[in-house]
Amino acid sequence: MAASTDETPVLALTDIRRDFRMGRLLVRALRGVTMDVLPGEFLVVMGPSGCGKSTLLTLIGGLDRPTAGSIVTSGDEDITRGDETALAEYRRRWIGFIFQSYNLIPTMTARQNVEFPLVFAGIGRAARRARAEALLKRVGLGDRMTHRPIELSGGQQQRVAIARALANAPAIVLGDEPTGNLDTRSGQEIMDLLLELNRAGTTLIVVTHDARLCTYAHRVVRMEDGVVLGVDAGGRADEPRRSVPIEGDTRDVGVTAAAVRGHSIRRRRSFTTAEA
């Protein structure tokens, strides 16, 4: 296993439950999930459809609240206890989202889409633009800055979405079947891009059906029916995890930096490049 025990996890999930009440029926989507996310790792979550993968990801991403359990960050904050604003702040500072259906704003250009998270982070125009352009170049879309989503292929749209997810230099990037809507070749390209980002220091959790992704992962979490069956070693289990030092401000962070901004950084100083 890649994790050394003395390492502070980026996120620690303990006994997470999520019930959905549908009329008189109680759907228990997650029935006690406990797991860690280690800095710099590429974590793949696999399992049959309906086993609770997406539900887990939305909870990690702060888009929803668990019925029970805690999610504690390396900043020692339990995000399940914060109010709406605290959760919004967590999403902004800690999380980058990649959706299966890209979810770009159709009226905005690629660059504007990438800039959008920075708007809510209160970053100035010039800095925003520079960062968006750098990110788009990073994902190979330097020549598509002013294209709107409709003028881009699925693979290109997903690249824009990845650039957007990286905009605030989040601690973790979450992908819910990011290759699910793509043809094999585009899917492969996106996977390669994710691998590249992870090698440069981005912590990734990717939910997928696609067994090919396991070869990219440090660890593979196998889920079934709302519980974790086990954690397997991925194809890169022995490859060192690289985690970029945490810096103070998104504006100064390099394109590949998996850094968070502001106060939550204080307690995350301890890990740099973790060895297996």
Partner: peptide, 10 residues
Amino acid sequence: GVMKAIGATN
């Protein structure tokens, strides 16, 4: 939903 996912507050 997207706005919120990328960090917009209520």
